[in-house]
Computed example of a mutant assay.
Amino acid sequence: MLEPYEQQHYDNLHKWMNPKWDFIVMQATEQYKASKERKKPDRVVLDCQERAYWIVHRPPRRTHSAMDYGLDRLIDPNAEEVLTFDMVRRTNIFLTQALMRSAVKSSVSLTAFVKYVTTHHNHDPFLTTPVPSNPWITDSDEFWQLNSRSVDIPTKLSVERWVLSFWELISDPRGRVDFKLFLKKEHSAENMAFYEAAEEMRWGAASAIPEKSQFIFNTFLKPGAPRWINIDGRTMGLTVKGLVVPHRYVLDAAQTHIFLLMKKDTFYRYLKSPVHKDIFYNVPPVSVPGYLLPLPQVSGP
């Protein structure tokens, strides 16, 4: 994906070269054939002549060459880099972190990959036979409609996928609705509300960031807030301090803390709760026609 200015320069270059491209290809083909027909001593002489020419006509230092000059650059590629203390310090920190980064053995990676494939085998339509029909070899798209992310009526396959991981659960809009219902009964619905507000601020419009950050602070982070979230003091302090000059990623630490809290604690209690068991054991397979599972109603935010 090119930046807008890169796409503009690329389009101009393409427009400039388009009527000449056939001629360039033809000329290159003829030169290639001529070079093949030359004898080896002639090729050596021509190569030496070309090398000598570029040694004599090499552009002076600190000047742009027509061979390498393209878009306007923020730095001069021919300028000598002056090392400063700050540059050396940052390079040292980067190399130290690179050495401390843990390396995963190939056997461990392959084991994890095999485990993932085994776990998701039944949920891959290319490894198992899709039901009620295969949309790739038939004209029926019922499989895609029933297993859509935004469907109101989950299938047995969708409900089983929620058990695989917490991310699978909240990635499915239908599963997120069911999880919110459980959180409301647990009196901890503010965790998911804060997570969604942080996601909206991260991916929303830049012009709305100040307004959203103020809303999040007054609703979730301010002492005595109506939906105050329970996070550790250090994370709370860093988040509140960062909201003075808000940006897209100012809530990352608090959002990660809430996500891990729901993943390690709330998610497993949800799997054992009657809310999940009712839908898990009562939802029929997709082969049962005409069965509609009602969507639970979550009142309030």
Rank of each mutant, 00 (worst) to 15 (best):
L2F: 10
L2C: 05
E6Y: 05
H9R: 15
D11N: 11
N12W: 06
L13F: 10
H14L: 15
K15E: 12
D22M: 08
D22Y: 05
I24V: 15
I24N: 10
E30V: 12
Q31D: 10
Y32V: 11
K33G: 07
A34V: 04
A34E: 15
A34M: 08
A34P: 03
V45L: 13
I55F: 08
H57S: 07
P59R: 07
P60C: 02
T63G: 01
T63A: 02
H64N: 02
H64L: 07
S65C: 02
M67H: 02
D68M: 02
Y69M: 00
G70Q: 04
L71T: 12
I75L: 14
P77W: 11
N78M: 12
A79G: 10
A79Q: 15
E80W: 10
E80F: 11
E81H: 13
V82E: 15
T84S: 14
V88L: 14
R89K: 12
R90D: 13
A98Q: 15
A98P: 01
R101C: 08
R101K: 14
V104L: 09
V104H: 04
S107A: 12
A112W: 03
V114Q: 09
K115S: 12
V117I: 12
T119L: 13
H120D: 02
P125M: 07
L127F: 06
L127C: 09
T128D: 00
T129W: 03
T129F: 06
V131N: 01
S133Q: 10
P135K: 09
T138H: 07
T138G: 04
E142P: 00
F143M: 05
F143E: 03
Q145K: 15
L146C: 01
S148G: 14
S148Q: 07
S150C: 07
S150H: 11
D152W: 03
D152T: 11
I153T: 12
L157Y: 01
V159F: 03
R161F: 07
V163C: 05
S165M: 02
F166S: 09
R174E: 05
G175D: 02
D178P: 00
F182P: 07
K184G: 10
K184D: 09
A189S: 13
E190Y: 03
Y195P: 02
A198K: 02
E199D: 00
E199F: 00
E199R: 01
E200C: 00
M201P: 04
M201I: 00
W203R: 06
W203C: 00
W203T: 10
G204L: 03
G204Q: 01
A208F: 01
P210F: 00
P210D: 00
E211W: 01
K212I: 00
N218F: 02
T219Q: 14
R227A: 12
W228Y: 12
I229G: 05
N230H: 11
D232L: 09
D232K: 15
R234F: 06
T235Y: 02
T235V: 14
V240R: 10
V240H: 04
V240I: 14
V240Q: 05
K241L: 03
R248W: 01
V250R: 03
A253T: 11
A254Y: 00
T256W: 09
T256L: 13
Y268T: 10
Y270A: 08
L271R: 12
K272A: 13
S273A: 14
H276E: 00
D278K: 10
F280N: 08
Y281H: 13
N282Q: 06
P289Q: 15
P294Q: 13
P294G: 07
V298Y: 07
V298K: 04
G300P: 08
G300Q: 07
